[in-house]
Design a protein around this nucleic acid. Sequence first.
DNA 1: CAATGATTGACCGACGGTCGGTCGAGAGGT
DNA 2: ACCTCTCGACCGACCGTCGGTCAATCATTG
Lengths: 207, 207
Amino acid sequence: MTRVVKKPEVRRADIVEAARDLFGANGFEGTTMHDLMRELNVAKGTIYHYFKSKEELLEAVINNIADESIKRMEFIVDETTGDALTKIRALVSAGRVADNNQDLMQQLHRSTNAGMHARLLAVVLQQQAALYAKLFQQGHDEGLFQLAAPPLETAEFILTSIQFLTDEGIFPWTGETLLRRAQAFPSLVEKQLGARPGSFDFLFPRM
Amino acid sequence: MTRVVKKPEVRRADIVEAARDLFGANGFEGTTMHDLMRELNVAKGTIYHYFKSKEELLEAVINNIADESIKRMEFIVDETTGDALTKIRALVSAGRVADNNQDLMQQLHRSTNAGMHARLLAVVLQQQAALYAKLFQQGHDEGLFQLAAPPLETAEFILTSIQFLTDEGIFPWTGETLLRRAQAFPSLVEKQLGARPGSFDFLFPRM
DNA sequence: CAATGATTGACCGACGGTCGGTCGAGAGGT
DNA sequence: ACCTCTCGACCGACCGTCGGTCAATCATTG
């Protein structure tokens, strides 16, 4: 095979990108290193030159997705002007990881990928919590919220529940269950934040 | 090998029990079907006679653990007399899945087992939520709580956060992080339930 | 042109899973 | 009580696949 030499950073990025696509299309366990080397037109050893195991490659893919997600969210917060509630609203509507990773999410819904999924959730969550914490603090300062606990812990608390309970990846919730929960979220969040009733109605947009 | 015939239920239970032990000791991926057949003194085909895949066996193990857990908790609720807060306190102190599955939990702390772990959490959670929902309702009726949403959704919301955020299995939180969160839980829960400040101090017992 | 290190691909051992076949036990006939 | 006959629990050699290894090879750089 014709030998192609690339700069290490480039090759590394190529591998992560291809892995991300394949994991998204076929799942982690459903993707073989052979699939990956064929996709990349690269020998197996090359991949193992950059990642010492498939597991480590998964780690890199997860961080890649998470980093992209958090950057997008930070950008949204920065470009949005207004009070905390306005910023939160903008963030929520654009913040679903699912939207920009449609096929990935579809794969994550297979229970075999629960591991990959849970780990991705955990990383994304920690990053998002820091972001929301700032907004909660702002809202508190603006008199919109009455927090009972530090902003970061409050953000972690709320985000964790919403992510896990709305995510069909780890456990296949039924449609009714999801609806039932979605309807309860506004009240739950308002209560937790001490926000005005109705201020989080946007969490469950009736159509 | 000497052939031993058992009643199907017995053999099935034996397999689940042994699998539970081995998964607990070495993790799901760290346990081979060969290990299992050696432990059971049984041929590989026998295991596959009862479970069509390793994956399906995992499912059975998870349900086995979850069932045992929920039965213990239901028993505790039944034998405890008093108001909702008293029952909740009893439940929490005995309800940690970790306590009665020490080595299992230790294994779950390996990120390779995130899948097994997340799925177990999901099942246990759904069962526990139903139980706590009853107590939240009782507390509401007794005037101890002021719920902002239906009891079941409230229970799911709270339990999910606490389980996920205190569990080191999926993402290895640091000790400080765990402490920081534990300190915030009482306030967060009280706020969510509309309970008297201090009534959930038992969630974070200072030593 | 030598040194470096990126790249190759044949090779390996372990693993999950299959399948043709064996054998014990209970049902039903005599 | 004894003998079949049938069912399905049980066996284990075998298979294909997969993650991972490594010595050789080749492009690039100084």
